[in-house]
Every structure is written in structure tokens, then in C-alpha cells.
């Protein structure tokens, strides 16, 4: 790949999804794009980008964005946000909402470990929140990620990243060399392709948004846009959960940190009044 090719790939990611890709990271870009080129029938990544320059194929451009956007994930990643969800966020909302639905969104769900961790938590808590109606939603930029997530199929490696063994026994079955999540948990989740920096006004209203390890990977221009989009999609008394090391300070006034609850944010009422 020439530096110009890498620059092109980075530009496509920035303009379509607000993703910050360092064009200097030759190995990263090339290793992510090689499978795309193969899948699309090109002899090399160079051929694919050459073709893209000529034809501006929208679908191909999105395949490139999807390949470069994919991040690491694990069940119950970082643990603490899920513990807070279980012990504080969900019980509080169950009290506040009564019989009204509590809507939870995993934004940028990747291969589904985050939303399924939340779904298992909800399922295992049924006895403590009788009457609560919890609706779970997951979205990702990538159709391929959504397909994998919906299948509920994970490799032995994937199910050993963060998933306690009792959860495996309670919620998974073996399917040849893979593990498959029970239909009961899978059916709790609704899926949609969403570009988080696009217009989210039709995305709906949510009481809890998990949007972790997205903000940190965006271009400086798109960071405030993401937070403002999420603020509009969050109910006034809802909670936003970000990844470790991701903060709102100096990015946008749409949110404020919840004291003593690292990674948890609430809408800033002053900002709402101004908007």
C-alpha cells in the first residue's frame, strides 16, 4: 500500500463514520483490508483502492470502514460497569419506571458480547425486579458484526474472555466446536445498523446507553457530535456509560459525570435548557 492509499482509507473512515485512523499504521490498515480485498475478488489491497478511486463504489467504501472500525471486545468487559448496572442502575430505573418499559441500548455492539452480558444480567435479576419491563437494543455500523452478533455463536476463545463459567453453564450450549447462546437470551435483543455520527433522531429514546470505546476512536470534530447525538437519544433521567479513559470534559457540555461512579454520565440539565 502506498502512503496515498492509506491516506485514502483514513479519509473514507473519517468522512463516513468520524473514525480517526492513523495513516502511518501501515500494518494495521493492510492487515484489516486484506480480507476485504480477498472477499471482494481483488488481487490485492492496492487493486481494491485503485478501483475505489475510479468507481467510488459506496458499498465497497463501507466495507473498508467496517473492517477498520472493528475493535476488541469481551463479555462483561471491565466488569465494573456491569456491576453498577446490576446493583444500581437497573434497580433504580425499575423503581422509577414501574410498568413502563426500561430501554437499554448497546451502541456499537460489535459481535454482541456487551448486549448479551446485559441481557444475561437482566435475565438473572428477574426475581429482584418483578414487573419491570426491560427492552434491549443493539446497534453497530457493521452489518457483518450484526450478523455475527445475532447468531449468538462464539468460539471457545471468545467465551473464555470475561464470561464466568456459571454463566456459560446457565446460558450456553455447545454446537460442534463453537458455543451458542440460548435462544431465550438472544430473543431479548433487537438489532439495527446505526452510524452514531449520522442523524439519530429516529433512533428512539433510551434509559441506558452503553457506548464504550467509540468516543476515544473518533476524530476531534466528531467527538462532540457523538455526545450530542447520544444526549438527544437518552431520557432526561437516563445514564450513559463510556469506556475507561473516555471522558466528556472539554469535549461537550451535554453530559456530566455521575459522582463516585466512574464511567457513568447523566445529561446536563443546563445544557438541555440551552438547546
Amino acid at each position: 500500500m502506498t502512503p496515498e492509499d492509506r491516506e485514502l482509507a483514513a479519509q473514507i473512515c473519517a468522512s463516513r463514520a468520524g473514525l480517526l485512523i492513523d495513516p502511518e499504521k501501515a500494518y494495521f490498515i493492510e492487515s484489516r483490508l486484506a480480507p476485504v480485498a480477498r472477499r471482494e475478488g481483488f488481487g490485492s489491497v492496492d487493486d481494491m483502492l485503485g478501483d475505489l478511486r475510479l468507481k467510488r463504489d459506496d458499498r465497497l467504501a463501507w466495507s473498508i470502514v467496517e473492517a477498520l472500525a472493528a475493535g476488541e471486545t469481551a463479555f462483561y468487559r471491565d466488569r465494573r460497569p456491569f456491576a453498577l448496572f446490576e446493583t444500581e442502575i437497573l434497580p433504580t430505573l425499575a423503581r422509577l419506571r414501574g410498568n413502563e418499559p426500561i430501554r437499554i441500548w448497546s451502541a456499537a455492539c460489535g459481535s454482541g458480547q456487551e448486549i448479551y452480558s446485559l441481557a444475561m444480567t437482566v435475565e438473572d435479576m428477574r426475581g429482584q425486579i418483578p414487573g419491570a419491563k426491560v427492552e434491549l437494543f443493539a446497534s453497530d455500523l457493521s452489518e457483518r458484526a450484526l450478523e455475527k452478533a445475532q447468531s449468538g455463536l462464539y468460539t471457545q476463545f471468545e467465551i473464555q474472555r470475561g464470561l464466568p463459567i456459571r454463566h456459560l453453564v446457565n446460558h450456553f450450549e455447545k454446537a460442534d466446536e463453537m458455543w451458542v447462546l440460548s435462544p431465550r437470551i438472544r430473543q431479548m435483543v433487537r438489532w439495527r445498523r446505526i452510524n452514531l455520527i449520522a442523524d439519530l433522531s429516529t433512533a428512539g429514546r433510551f434509559d441506558v446507553i452503553f457506548c464504550r470505546y467509540v468516543l476515544g476512536g473518533l476524530t476531534p470534530q466528531m467527538k462532540p457530535r457523538l455526545l450530542e447525538n447520544l444526549a438527544r437519544a437518552l431520557s432526561p433521567d437516563g445514564f450513559l456509560v463510556l469506556g475507561e479513559g473516555e471522558g466528556v470534559t472539554g469535549v461537550s457540555d451535554a453530559f456530566q459525570a455521575v459522582t463516585g461512579r466512574p464511567g457513568v454520565y447523566a445529561r446536563n440539565p443546563a445544557y438541555r435548557a440551552a438547546a
Partner: peptide
């Protein structure tokens, strides 16, 4: 806890957590 081989350092660390 229960680890299925093959394992790596990440899996052992995650299970010990």
C-alpha cells in the same frame, strides 16, 4: 472456575479476576 485448553495469559488473568 474452569478453563478449556488451549489457554493464553489473557484467559488465565480474566478467570483469576
Amino acid at each position: 472456575e474452569y478453563i478449556m485448553k488451549p489457554f493464553d495469559g489473557d484467559i488465565i488473568a480474566s478467570k483469576l479476576v
